[in-house]
């Protein structure tokens, strides 16, 4: 249907086809569906994915993805019998907000991702065999994201945690400025595997951070840190955590675990849970 706003084509809903017009793009065999995403706009992809999920599909393979947004976002089903957990495999380059508000599914990307990966993600897992853009894991509240290469600016901004829901982000490469800004919870690991002993370049790391923990492997100078974080000693608990998640990371991406764990790790924690407690007269 043709949608326009004041004469301009609606860039989201313009020329979106009905489900019955695009149903041929999905091939369901057993509990696996394969969708040819080339030529589909984002709403059509999610329409098809939702359709497949309602048909009882457990795994969806998307091929030819190129810039379509919100993949996996529309797979929340109010009042489900049992919570659906779908495995989504993506070949190509998904667009912004990949897995935003993700509700328990697993997304594997064979390619790079763009901005907003796992935006306000609730649960599930996102694995990226490549790099990702800005604001990865923004306001993420649960689940795990593993990214093989680099990430952009403001990664893990305002990540949260609550009780058993502790989100985890592991980045294999390095990050740009404002890494872990405003972080309120969760665990972020930055491995710097592609730095060859050069220091990380990010500035304002953990500025405004008031919860959660960051682990950084490699060299970071104190001036690169926000004034709200401090460096503390690694404890047994921390090594256990690193062992598990970095272990999984290495296994998934085929990296030698011992070499990675042999590096030096910094543990960053907020200096206070209340960074801005003293700005008011009363």
């Amino acid at each position: 249907m043709e949608y326009s706003i004041g004469g301009l084509r609606d860039m989201f809903l313009g020329n979106v086809r009905r489900l019955d017009e695009i149903i041929g793009y999905a091939k369901i065999s057993g509990d696996v569906a394969e969708i040819d995403a080339s030529g589909l706009v984002h709403k059509e992809i999610n329409d098809l994915m939702r359709h497949c999920a309602l048909q009882g599909v457990k795994k969806i393979v998307l091929r030819g993805v190129c810039g379509q947004r919100y993949i996996g976002t529309r797979l929340h089903f109010p009042n489900p019998g049992a919570k659906l957990k779908i495995e989504i495999e993506i070949y190509g380059y998904p667009g912004n907000d990949l897995g935003a508000f993700l509700d328990g599914h697993r997304i594997v990307v064979h390619g790079n991702a763009q901005d907003g990966v796992g935006n306000t993600m609730d649960s599930g897992e996102i694995i990226i065999h490549g790099r990702a853009g800005d604001v990865v894991a923004m306001s993420m509240r649960g689940g795990r994201i593993l990214i093989r290469d680099d990430v952009g600016y403001r990664t893990a901004i305002h990540m949260k945690e609550y009780k058993e829901k502790v989100p985890v982000l592991v980045v294999g490469g390095t990050a740009q400025d404002f890494f872990g800004e405003y972080m309120a919870g969760g665990r972020v690991v930055l491995l710097g595997l592609n730095l060859d002993d050069k220091p990380h370049r990010a500035r304002y790391i953990g500025t405004g951070m008031h919860g959660g923990i960051m682990y950084i492997r490699g060299r970071v100078e104190p001036w690169q840190l926000g004034k709200e974080v401090g460096i503390v000693d690694m404890e047994a608990e921390d090594w256990k955590f690193i062992e598990k998640h970095v272990g999984d990371f290495c296994e998934i991406f085929g990296i030698k675990k011992d070499e990675v764990l042999g590096g030096s790790f910094l543990k960053l924690k907020p200096v206070t849970k209340r960074p801005y407690g003293k700005v008011y007269a009363y």
Partner: peptide, 12 residues
């Protein structure tokens, strides 16, 4: 709010 007790709830 799904945040730990006693932490500041900061809205950027």
């Amino acid at each position: 709010r799904m945040i730990p007790e006693g932490t500041d709830a900061l809205s950027p």
